[in-house]
Amino acid sequence: MMTMVVAVLVVLMLATALLVLVTPNMIAAVAASSAVSLVVSVLFVMLRAPDVAMTEAAVGAGLSAMVLALGLRRLGLWKLDNREKDDA
């Protein structure tokens, strides 16, 4: 049971991390990186590290996304259909 849950979480996490690199939309990339942090914090709870899980949830999924979204806003990348040709 535990193995199944962890397997699902790990696959979800890696897929979301790949999504960060390949999605053309920068807002979606920031949201996906925040989701990666959320899954990592769930994994921290499973590793019996509640302190670290709390920090990761507050910082990685909350504040870091806020900082990155503000950066997007100031960089002029805040577009919902942002298809860049030159981004590998």
Partner: peptide
């Protein structure tokens, strides 16, 4: 709450500080 109970329950200055920063922002 998280800052004050840092020595008893999970949490502490770092987590609570981040939450305070979010509250003020």
């Amino acid at each position: 709450y998280i800052i004050l109970h840092g020595h008893l329950t999970p949490g502490g200055g770092f987590q609570g500080g981040v939450i305070l920063a979010a509250a003020f922002f």
